[in-house]
Each structure stands twice: as C-alpha cells, then as structure tokens.
Design a protein around this nucleic acid. Structure first.
Length: 399
RNA sequence: GUGCCCAUAGUUUAGUGGUAAAACUUCGGUUUGUGGAACCGAUAUCGAGAGUCCGAUUCUCUCUGGGCACC
C-alpha cells in the first residue's frame, strides 16, 4: 500500500471526466481539485486560515525556491513544510523542473507556459541563449540564483533529496519543461533526458524511508508532438509511480489533443495532475479529458495585480468605471471580500497601492476557482457536467 | 512704478530654426508547475497675438500670467 490511495468513478457519459477521492497522509482531496500555488511557502497574501475558508484543499510549493530561500534544511529542522507554513492539509512540491524552462529558455523573453499562434514557430536567436540563467547538461541543470547570483546544480537525486526534506505528501520527479520554440529533434532529446531522470528519481525515492509517506509523481512531456507525447505516457506509465503530472508548454488547443492522447495511455487507477493550468476554460477542458488535479498561479497573480474573476468574465479593477461601483466583485460569490466590500473600495485600495487590495482580490479569486471546482464536482455527480461546462464558458467568455 | 527671469503632456522637467523627450499621473491591455505588485500601448494646437524666415515651440516685439530684485 503506497502513501496515497485514489478511487474514482466516471459519472459523465459524454466525457472522460473523473470524480474521485485522493487519500493522503494529511487528509483527503475531493477531485477534480485545484492546488493553490504557494511557491515560496506562502500563498501570496493569504493566511492559511483564510485559505481554508476559500475551500482550498491542497497547497503546492516549489522545491527550487525553497532550496534557495530559506533552505530545505531550515524547513526540515522546523518540522517540515506542513508545520512551517501551518497548513495541516495535503501538500505538493514541484521538483524545480519547471524552473529549467522559466529560468532557461523562457527567461527574459516574455514567453509564458502558453505560446500564442505564430510564436510557436519563431526560431531563437543566439542572443536569447545568453540571457538564460539555467543551463542543462545530460546529468542535471546548473542554476544561477536569481537572489544572489550564486551557482547551484540540480540532479534528479538532489531534487528528490530536497523534496524529502520538505516533506510534502506528493512530490514530483525532476523533469525538463521544453520551450515550444525548440525543434522536434531537441524535444526528443529532452524527452529522453526527462525519462532517464524520472527513473533515477524513482530509484532514489524507493531506496528511502520517505517513500512510505510521500507519493512520487512523474511528469509526462513531449511538447506538442503526438508521437512523443504518447511515447512519454507509455514509458512513464509503465513505471511504478504513484501518479502523473502532465507538463509542458502549450498552445491553447493542446489541452484537447496532447492531454487527451496522454490520458488515454496513462494507467487509469492513478491520479493525473495537469501542471500549471489554469484559466477556467482550460480547467474545464482538462477535467473533460480526465485530469484530476490542477494548479496555477493565476488566481493569486491576477488578484494581486487587479484582475478579478466574475461569472461574466475577468474585470480590471483599475478601470475608471469601478471607481464608483458600490456592488460586490461578483454578487453570487460567498467569499469574505464579496460579502463585505464593494468594487469602489477595491478600486480605491489598488489605486492607493494599499496592500489590502491584493489580499482581498486574491482571497476572492482563490475562492472563485475553488468554487468552480466545487461546481464541477457537483455537476459530475449529477450527470450535468457537459451542460455546466457549456453554460459557464458561454457566460464567462461572452463578447 | 522700474529692471531682470520664467511660461513645453494632468504634474515636475528635457530639448531643438525643419511640428517634440523622460518620470510620475491618467486611460486601456497582457499575465497559465510565480525571478520580477511586472510588462506593453495611448494621451501635447510647445501661454496668446503679431513680425522675421522657404519654414518659428525655438529668434524679435506686444499682451497675459507667475517669480525675483530695487524704489
């Protein structure tokens, strides 16, 4: 018996959506579920108490960031991540693999996890390569700390060792998230590396006591190529991981293709985490194609910078029209912010650069996303998921 | 009353005989396993009028408004 148990049903006749429960050493996760992102051991602006009230079930922190600051040894000697951040529910740590991308190929270029249209085809120039602060070799990745410029080397074993010290319930194998600008040849090379690293992570993990309390997920890669995606799902799916992450940089339409291909192959009985997603439409699409877990910076990043979710789409609280709007952000929302404050107040706080603005906005956005997942689970149970998805998207993205 | 100085974006300032630049503000937008509360756009009849000149925001004069000094 591994550290986690996953059970699920396929209540929706028209899709591969799954409704389940993931049992972890720190409690159950009702899936599909959203993991709030707290990269540096804090969900920016929210206390764990507020976080609980938003309906958050899982907390995702980042290995690379915590290794640099404050250091995994400090967190370990404080009693581990759960105790350190005062979150007694399930926790996940990302392996640092994504930073290979965000500090490497994507560094300083404004490339996000999502590429848009023709950007996918743009070749990289030599100058771009100079910019990056992460470089890859066959056995690991050299990072230059963005904090003090010091040099650090990550190997698969190093990533797992750090994640063992942090002590999250679910940890990830060290992978390489490639830029969508890379050639197929490079994607193939990177995938072989990710697979080799995954095996090393698994071997190292299974040799340690921590494997009894921490579940290890591998990350499926392969870019936008069907053959590589399927190959990755086959290969990693045949190994004894506790679950799977689906990683990579996407085009908007890839959820319905890449994710679908992968989920048709991955072992059904294991949970699947669609990494770094997302926007409501992408989440709904991910659920439809059989993903159980999601995580994304969007609710907090958007909240902190003044974009707020409503059922009628996102609003930018800086817009003039909200300066004199005494209604709540979303009149149907039951969050602390919506129950107590109006748009006009939020607009004032943001303009005055008061920190409470970001706090209240993040509280709302995180609640909004968690409520979306509550609705998803409810409609899956009632067999009305397809209808719900259609109506939600029609209203949220109208115009 | 006399003399001197100043007038450029909402604000504070650059700058030039060939129709203008920056910062902040304002008005929009972007943000998908969080380096970056960041980034990208937009916004000016260069105080008013007359003159010199192919051409004046720039040089000259008058006016208006403001500042300083002296009486």
């Amino acid at each position: 018996m591994g550290p986690i148990q996953f059970t699920f049903t396929n209540p929706d006749k028209n899709s591969s959506a799954r409704l389940g429960v993931l049992k972890t050493p720190h409690g159950d996760i009702q899936t599909p579920a959203f993991a709030v992102v707290g990269t540096k051991a804090t969900v920016k602006g929210l206390t764990p108490q507020v976080l609980k009230e938003t309906g958050a079930q899982v907390f995702l922190a980042n290995t690379y960031h915590l290794y640099l600051q404050p250091g995994h040894d400090i967190i370990k000697s404080s009693g581990g991540l759960h105790k350190f951040v005062k979150w007694d529910g399930p926790m996940i740590t990302d392996s640092g693999g994504f930073q290979v991308f965000s500090l490497g190929a994507a560094y300083g270029k404004g490339i996000s996890k999502f590429a848009k249209g023709e950007e996918l085809l743009l070749p990289e120039s030599k100058e771009d390569v100079v910019m990056q602060i992460a470089t890859i070799d066959p056995s690991g990745v050299t990072f230059k700390s963005h904090i003090d410029g010091s040099t650090h080397y990550f190997t698969p074993e190093k990533s797992i060792e750090i994640q063992h010290a942090l002590g999250a319930d679910i940890i990830f194998a060290f992978d390489e998230c490639t830029s969508p600008h890379e050639s197929l040849h490079y994607q193939k090379e990177a995938l072989e590396r990710t697979h080799r690293w995954a095996k090393q992570c698994l071997k190292y993990h299974q040799s340690k006591e921590e494997s009894k309390k921490q579940a290890l997920f591998a990350v499926v890669q392969g870019g936008r190529d069907e053959t590589l995606r399927k190959e990755s799902a086959e290969f990693l799916g045949s190994l004894d991981f506790d679950g799977y992450g689906i990683g990579g940089s996407f085009g908007k339409e890839d959820i319905g293709t890449s994710v679908k291909w992968v989920n048709e192959i991955l072992p059904k009985e294991k949970p699947r985490h669609l990494l770094g997603i997302g926007e409501p439409d992408d989440i709904l699409s991910g659920v439809e194609h059989g993903c159980d877990l999601f995580d994304c910076v969007i609710p907090t990043r958007l909240g902190r910078t003044g974009s707020l979710f409503t059922l009628d789409g996102k609003i930018n609280i800086f817009n003039t029209v909200f300066q004199n709007d005494s209604s709540p952000i979303d009149s149907t929302c039951d969050c602390y912010t919506c129950k107590n404050f109006c748009r006009s107040y939020l607009a004032h706080l943001f303009r005055a650069k008061e920190m409470l603005g970001g706090v209240l906005a993040s509280t709302h956005n995180v609640r909004f996303i968690n409520k979306l997942f509550e609705d998803i689970r409810l409609h899956l149970k009632e067999g009305t998921f397809g209808e719900f998805k259609y109506n939600f998207i029609a209203r949220f993205y109208k115009k």
